[in-house]
Amino acid sequence: MKKDLYEILGIDKSADAGAIKKAYRKKALKYHPDKNPGDKQAEENFKAAAEAYEVLSDPDKKAKYDQYGHQAFEAGGFGGGHHMNMDDIFSQFGDIFGSAFGGGFSGFGGGGGQRRAKGSNLRIKVKLTLEDIAGGVEKKVKVKRKVQAQGVTYKTCATCNGQGQVMRVTNTILGRMQSASTCPTCHGTGQILDKKPADADAQGLVIAEETVSIKIPAGVVDGMQLKVSNKGNEAPGTNSLPGDLIVAIEEVEHEFLKREGENLHYDLYISFPEAVLGISKDIDAVGGKVRIKLEEGIQSGKILRLKGKGIPSLNGYGSGDLLVHVNVWTPKHLNKEQKAFFEKSLQEDNFVPSPEKSDKSFFEKVKDMFS
């Protein structure tokens, strides 16, 4: 079971942005690879802290995590900081370390201040039916993404000698001061374009279409975003990382079923004779037709609850229910014989409304639905 992100940073849910950043810096400095050479557990703790900060420092991601937990980002293998490598972490959060480790970038797994370029993210929408959402689904989509052209080559940047940084010496009243900054030629990657095919752009990239398989877990909601790692645009250079594919979920409205969280609602209309005599009815559910039996004398407004026939919980805690709302349909036009029958029935005791104490009012039913 994955550890709670707040627990990883040693903070509670009420922590503000400043407290989250301060807690991450404390953990990152404690487990930094430069302070713990060869310590695999420290490396894992360092990555876990980066994952926690990546989510909790972003208001939108934090809100999703607070509502859905790890499933909001990692269900079905999507995203998550544990999939980040050291270069990802230093490129995204290196400024947090300040000068504690010689200017932000560690050189872990690479040389000096060199960092790995990362391609841009791509965003797509995927439409899902209630059936897709209830059972989980694998979608194959065609994505046009930038990739390195066949035959493209890169060479060491002459400006920074492949280090990704340039050193400057400044004379001050305190003496000679040395400072490092990102190389303006290669932008910190240590490489520049050498040879490129005619169809490639200035970075040596071309547009290619690829079919990407997306495993979508059961229980996702409209507007949720999932991440497929490394399926975004590629970046130039032999040591670069692709961006990610961000998948936005769009729920297609069902013809008969209305969704409310993990519960589903179905309006069932029956005739007056069916209400009086009782009847069995087939209704639509996400798993197919379900037969229910209506008792004799059922009242309009009655709500029947079918346990577990709703949408599965995204966190794996069972499924919601299917709520069947019974509506007795009153005919608007009667022939003479039918009208005579009901006029005679006005004098019958059986047709005089006599609600029992167990029959809840409309407001009580609404209250039950939301409680």
Rank of each mutant, 00 (worst) to 15 (best):
E262I: 02
E250D: 13
L277R: 09
I279R: 07
F256Y: 13
L245F: 03
R259L: 05
L245H: 07
D284F: 00
E262M: 04
K258A: 09
N263M: 04
V252Y: 03
I279V: 09
L257Q: 04
K281S: 07
I283N: 09
V286D: 06
V247I: 00
G278Q: 05
G261P: 11
N263T: 08
D267N: 14
L268P: 08
E262N: 12
L257R: 07
I283F: 09
I249T: 05
V252A: 01
K258N: 14
I270A: 03
N263E: 05
L268I: 01
N263K: 06
E255H: 12
V247S: 07
G278Y: 08
G278F: 09
E251Q: 15
V252I: 15
A248C: 12
N263Q: 04
S280R: 02
L245D: 03
P273M: 08
L257I: 08
L277Q: 06
F256D: 13
A275Q: 03
Y266S: 02
E251M: 15
I249P: 06
E262P: 07
E251V: 14
I246V: 01
V276W: 12
F256G: 00
K281Y: 10
K281Q: 12
V247Y: 09
A275T: 01
A248W: 11
A275M: 08
V286T: 15
V276R: 15
E260N: 14
V252L: 08
Y269Q: 03
Y269M: 12
L268F: 02
E260K: 14
I279T: 06
N263R: 03
F256N: 14
H254W: 02
G278P: 11
F256C: 07
P273N: 01
S271L: 09
E260V: 10
D282A: 08
E260T: 01
E253A: 13
E250C: 08
V252N: 08
I270H: 09
F272N: 03
H254N: 13
R259M: 11
E260S: 15
E260G: 13
L268D: 00
E274W: 03
I279K: 15
D284Q: 11
V247K: 07
E250G: 07
I279N: 11
L268T: 00
I270L: 14
F256W: 06
V276D: 06
H254E: 03
K281G: 07
I270D: 10
L264R: 00
E253L: 04
Y266F: 09
E260R: 14
